[in-house]
């Protein structure tokens, strides 16, 4: 490297670190502010306490939102994982015409603008009497979560060592036994990761949920959306902190699952 590379490199590196800091700073800053003892969010907070967390757990509005979110998220994650894993197998292993069409439809929930999806679902789910109900939210979130499972599981199906399957078959295992004894254990970490991503996709979903919620059935982000626009209640900061904490915990689980999958290769 010649002379001027040094300082330029240091400058670039500091720039990248600065950007990285700005990326997480807003989310991190909410954490101390949510523990404010004051009645409104001020910086720096006048004092610290858990007052707004207590408020959250005492509020019917917030807690019922949280319960709905967990129920919808778990149900959507389970459905999406089963359907998505089967689809990944069908897409990666199958040799039939129309596979690109299947793939395009799987990925389309990632590409179609979310407002467009929300409006379309709102009309049709209303006709089907699914709007404003828990099943409606679960079905909508499942379709949005399926791509994450399919993408995760297909990657692992494409990359694992297929000679292991051939070996099992040479030793006399049938296709079904080979699948359950060899293939499934090898791809299971990516199925777990896919399921967790599916849960996050549902847990954080706002726009479709706004349209499919009713006053009786509302997810946590929908409650938060209503509050953010109408009040400056610091409980919102407490909720934001808890939502982020949930996501961070789940992402750590994903990383653990992926590390295990690498270890089994």
């Amino acid at each position: 490297m010649s002379a001027d590379a040094g300082p330029r490199r240091i400058g670039l590196r500091s720039f990248a670190w600065l950007v990285g800091l700005v990326l997480i700073a807003p989310t991190l800053l909410i954490v101390p502010m949510s523990f404010t003892s004051g009645g409104i969010l001020l910086f720096p907070p006048p004092g610290f306490g858990t007052r707004w967390y207590v408020n959250f757990f005492q509020s019917q509005l917030w807690t019922s939102g949280a319960v709905t979110s967990v129920k919808v998220g778990v149900a959507a994650a389970v459905l999406a994982t089963v359907l998505g894993t089967l689809m990944a197998l069908g897409i990666v292993r199958g040799r039939y015409p129309g596979r690109p069409v299947v793939m395009a439809i799987v990925l389309s929930p990632l590409i179609v603008p979310v407002v467009v999806i929300a409006i379309g679902m709102y009309f049709v789910y209303t006709d089907w009497r699914l709007a404003g109900t828990m099943p409606g939210l679960i079905l909508a979130h499942t379709s949005l979560a399926i791509p994450f499972v399919v993408v995760n599981v297909s990657v692992s199906l494409r990359t694992f060592d297929r000679t292991l399957e051939l070996a099992a078959q040479n030793l006399g295992a049938g296709p079904i036994r080979t699948f359950f004894r060899i293939t499934l254990p090898l791809i299971s970490p990516s199925i777990v990761a896919g399921a967790l991503f599916a849960f996050i996709a549902s847990w954080d979903e706002v726009v479709v949920s706004i349209f499919l919620s009713s006053p009786l059935v509302r997810t946590l982000p929908v409650v938060m959306w209503g509050q953010v626009r109408s009040s400056i209640d610091p409980t919102i900061a407490a909720v934001a902190t808890m939502l982020t904490a949930t996501t961070v915990v789940i992402l750590s689980l994903v990383m653990l699952a992926q590390r295990r999958s690498r270890a089994t290769r």
Binding site: G20, P26, L29, V206, M224, L243, T244
Partner: peptide, 15 residues
């Protein structure tokens, strides 16, 4: 880069 990628869009916008 990835943590914000996966954390809630509503939370980050609120932040």
């Amino acid at each position: 880069v990835l943590v914000p990628f996966w954390s809630s869009l509503l939370v980050r916008t609120y932040a």
